[in-house]
Design a protein around this nucleic acid. Structure first.
Length: 905
RNA sequence: GGGCGCAUAGCUCAGCUGGUUAGAGCGCUACACUCACAUUGUAGAGGUCGAAGGUUCAAGUCCCUCUGCGCCCACCA
């Protein structure tokens, strides 16, 4: 057995097994009415994506779910794919052609899109390859892309369906505009971040007419406060609160807009906050959502002063052509010169930022397409309220509902090229209303003219992502060509609704909520039953990992250095329910060490395994009573850990499941069990139990650490059961997740075994307290205060000698203290270490006194509790009983300790 | 302005529906390379569970208030 190296090397196993799994088609799933379906659709990573820690966490969780359910005998499908990520991908390709000195406009729309496809062919599967390194057991034969032909058809169908229902409309509104990407964004795509800016106080002079009639006006101008002074060029009114006494007389009068010399009215509206700034607001209806509303209400003029790229346009007069921020400085300068800049105050404000390029967005008046969301939201709200869909952890339910109940219409048109072009056509001849069509039309529906033109805009990427749980199954046609052949048409029916969705909190609005709405609207059913929201991956200081901060830990580096199993296990074991994940490089050592521990324990088992005998003995039924206490103990412990871990997995508590298996294996199986059986490892029952427990443990752990468990399982079985590399290929992947055997779990027995271990621990403790060398064989005497304990000592004498490295163990017949000993107590058992050297009685006494004091404290608390009549009366009987027996035990220990101390005198 | 989360050992965090003496990993100290593993073993130090109230026979655990961090949402110009 020397050929097993003493260190586990993931590099030699991971790629090998992944390849075999793939070659043997173990990831694929198909509709199988005799089995329960289990389905997870992957949150499709962007085609431009490269694997980061967020992906690693997200996909580890999904793979655990899928592998677990697959092993539980469910037909488990993990549907993979990528997202075309309109803006992000277009940006990447624009950067790439910029190296050739080209802009997308130089190429033209068609050529540019061709270049994007080329880029996608070349780099688009990077992330898929990386997911494979992680061990992801997706059914790759089904890999989908949101721009696939069939998928595009689904997108168009959905657009047409909503159009026909009257849920899509066009409007001119102030929307979020990214001057860098030059497109409209939805509200979700323009998250607000705080900025340290200024509040500028500008003086707007009253016009002559205004001045003359206001004899009591304190001054001949009104001061307005703004954070974006450059927008003043587009002002068409100043608004005040009608109740504001300061301005009451001025309402209806006019002002002269400085620099532009436009006459603008002073209007009154209750929307204006009297307390903010000066109580007078400049109104720029084309560049602010609030002002837009005011503009509509008061029928003001809408003056757009900006080009789509953020430069000021011809309406800005002298400032035309300047960038918005440059213009701001110049305008302030000019106002100052004219004495119209009253003051500047520092002011924290929050502004929308483009979620793709982080540019400050500009509220911008433009014509866009919108989806009416309220009707779609209603069933999606109800489903969650009624518990048809459950969030884990539950608190996200509120976040979801709050958003859904205040949902705004969705701006879906984007002024970019890469994406699903809006399936709307305009007739250039009859100029009637636009019409929607799934198939590309040749003629105008109204007049039959062939002179028609498709809308230039593309749809928001999320307008395709929200169909992911069913469009990936070739809805609405239900059949299509996957990379590996025709997909059967009953798959959707079988796998939908899918089972669980795993994602990060920031995706709830973008994707989760919308999938739920799309599910009910188009499939008449929820898209999934459970939503597991995991935390955000952060660095050790709590900062989000990002390239710009330079605090990235690359999962591929970790895989390379520690192995994919280590990565998976470490990241899962610290991912508490929905808490953010704080990572540092060292974290992965835990996973690596665990893999190594499993490796070596297995190595030890295999080195000592008699394959032939185990093979025959596996079929032998060992009667419980015939098994040694330690064998019964490890079986009981194993099955109870298994039972708990299963419960945790079923309730999305992955870290708890992982940690249960970890501490069972390391601290019970390795630290105690293997050590106890070591001297008699060839005994038939030991052989069978250690083999069984290890083999089942590997299966239980497989969803978490697929590679190392497969490698060992294969080696183990090639010994124990001759499964070695036989055809057909057998894999731990498709073995059942072990069943719990309740009848073997025996808590009483566990306690017995553990009291033996406690004796061992006390002996070790004594040994180290007087600094006896480990190689010195010491003599121990022990006395059990009950018959049962005496018997237990007798029965486990050998184990104690072995574990505590004793020269001899004498079991006393009376509680009298042997001479020249130091002592310790455990529950019901006294332990004496024979000591020939000089005994420092004082030191020994001190130690015992310390223990006595501690014990007295606890006893005091217990006595207090038991003296309380309310406690006796109101606490449950069993608790009171527990307290009583606990007190009794403690008193016993106390007496024994006191006796020991007194004997020292 | 609303909403949510977190404050427990030096660090990072577990502690489920309240019930014996509050746990883990890392780090630290001492000892040990005895034939599975130094990516290891054994032993140990280290906590009045953020603060103040309250409910209860009993509170890290439930309620209220406060403090400090963090996040999300919202049209504060």
């Amino acid at each position: 057995m020397n050929e097993i190296p003493s260190r586990y090397n993931p590099k030699e196993t991971e790629d090998k097994w992944y390849k075999l799994w793939e070659e043997n088609d173990l990831f694929s799933a198909k509709a199988n009415p005799s089995k329960r379906p289990f389905c997870v659709v992957i949150p499709p990573p962007n085609v431009t994506g490269i694997l980061h820690m967020g992906h690693a966490l997200n996909n580890s969780v999904q793979d655990i779910l899928i592998r677990y359910h697959r092993m539980k005998g469910e037909e488990s499908l993990w549907m993979p794919g990528t997202d075309h990520a309109g803006i992000a991908t277009q940006n990447v390709v624009e950067k790439s052609i910029a190296k050739e000195g080209l802009k997308r406009q130089d190429l033209g729309r068609e050529k540019f899109i061709e270049r994007v496809w080329q880029w996608k062919e070349q780099y688009g599967s990077t992330i898929i390859r990386q997911l494979k390194k992680l061990g992801a057991s997706c059914d790759w034969s089904r890999t989908r892309f949101t721009m696939d032909e069939e998928y595009s058809k689904a997108v168009k169908s959905v657009f047409v369906a909503l159009w026909n229902k009257g849920l899509i409309y066009q409007d001119v509104k102030v929307i979020n505009w990214c001057p860098r990407c030059q497109t409209a964004l939805s509200d979700e795509e323009a998250p607000h971040h705080e900025l340290q800016g200024n509040l500028y106080y500008l003086k707007y002079p009253l016009s002559d007419q205004g001045k003359s009639s206001s004899g009591t006006a304190r001054s001949d101008y009104i001061v307005v406060a703004t954070t974006r002074p450059e927008t003043m060029l587009g002002d068409t009114a100043v608004a005040v609160n009608p109740k504001d006494k300061r301005y009451k007389k001025l309402v209806g009068k006019s002002l002269i807009l400085p620099l532009v010399n436009r006459e603008i009215k002073i209007i009154a509206d209750s929307m204006v906050d009297v307390k903010f700034g000066t109580g007078a607001v400049k109104v720029t209806p084309a560049h602010d959502p609030n002002d837009y509303a005011l503009g509509k209400k008061h029928k003001l003029e809408f003056i757009n002063v900006m080009h789509p790229d953020g430069r000021l346009n011809e309406n800005a007069g002298d400032y035309a052509g300047m960038d918005r921020f440059e213009a701001r400085e110049v305008i302030l300068e000019d106002l100052k010169e004219k004495g119209l800049l009253e003051k500047i105050e520092p002011h924290a404000l929050s502004a929308g930022h483009c979620y793709r390029c982080h540019t400050i967005i500009e509220p911008y008046l433009s014509r866009q397409w919108f989806v009416k969301m309220k009707p779609l939201a209603a069933p999606a709200i109800e489903a969650v309220k009624k518990g048809k869909i459950n969030f884990h952890p539950r608190r996200w339910t509120k976040v979801y509902l709050n958003w859904m109940e205040n949902i705004q219409d969705w701006c879906i048109s984007r002024q970019i090229w890469w994406g699903h072009r809006i399936p709307l056509w305009y007739c250039l001849d009859c100029k009637k209303e636009a019409f929607a069509s799934v198939e590309t039309p040749e003629k105008c529906r109204a007049c039959g003219s062939g002179n028609i033109k498709q809308d230039e805009d593309v749809l928001d990427t999320w307008f395709s992502s929200w169909l992911w749980p069913f469009a990936t199954f070739y809805w609405p046609n239900l059949q299509g060509q996957s990379p590996s052949g025709t997909v059967p048409s009953d798959d959707l029916k079988y796998f939908y609704p899918t089972s669980a969705l795993v994602t990060a909190p920031e995706i709830i609005f973008f994707w989760v909520a919308r999938m739920i709405m799309a599910g009910f609207e188009f499939m008449k059913d929820k898209p999934f039953s459970d939503v597991y929201i995991h935390g955000t991956v952060r660095d050790i200081e709590g900062k989000k990992m990002s390239k710009s901060l330079g605090n990235i830990i690359d999962p591929l580096d970790i895989i390379n250095e520690y192995g994919a199993d280590a990565l998976r296990f470490s990241i899962i074991s610290i991912t508490a329910q929905g808490q953010d994940v704080f990572l540092s490089q060292e974290r992965f050592e835990q996973g690596r060490n665990f893999a190594n521990k499993i490796w070596n324990a297995s190595r030890f088992v295999m080195m000592n395994l008699d394959p032939g005998q185990v093979k025959t003995d596996l079929c032998v039924f060992f009667k419980k009573e015939d098994l040694s206490i330690v064998n019964r103990w490890i079986l009981s412990r194993f099955y109870s850990a298994l039972k708990e871990a299963g419960k945790k997995l079923d309730t999305f508590k992955f870290n708890e499941a992982a940690n249960l298996l970890y501490s069972f294996f390391w601290h019970e199986f390795c630290d105690w069990y293997l050590e106890v059986i070591k001297p008699e490892i060839k005994a038939r029952q030991n052989q069978v139990v250690m083999f069984k427990v290890l083999e089942k443990f590997l299966r239980a752990l497989h969803p978490f650490m697929p590679f190392v468990t497969e490698e060992i399982w294969q080696r183990l079985n090639s010994q124990g059961q001759s499964l070695s590399g036989t055809v057909p290929f057998e894999s731990i992947m498709t073995e059942p997740w072990p069943h719990t055997q309740e009848q073997i779990i025996d808590k009483k027995l566990e306690k017995q075994a553990e009291s033996v271990f406690a004796v061992v621990k006390e002996i070790r403790n004594l040994r180290s307290s007087i600094e006896i060398k480990p190689e010195d064989k010491i003599s121990i005497s022990a006395f059990g205060h009950t018959k049962a304990k005496q018997k237990l000592l007798e029965a486990n004498k050998g184990s104690i000698i072995n574990l505590a490295k004793l020269g001899s163990l004498e079991i006393l017949v009376s509680s009298a203290r042997p001479k020249s000993t130091i002592s310790a107590v455990t529950e019901d058992i006294d332990v004496y270490l024979h000591f020939s050297g000089l005994l420092d009685a004082e030191k020994e006494k001190e130690k015992i006194n310390g223990k006595i004091k501690e014990l007295q404290r606890f006893i005091g608390a217990k006595v207090q509790r038991l003296k309380n009549p309310d406690f006796i009366q109101k606490a449950p009987e069993e608790i009171v009983e527990k307290e009583r027996s606990g007190l009794e035990e403690m008193n016993n220990s106390l007496k024994r300790l006191e006796k020991m101390r007194n004997e020292l005198l």
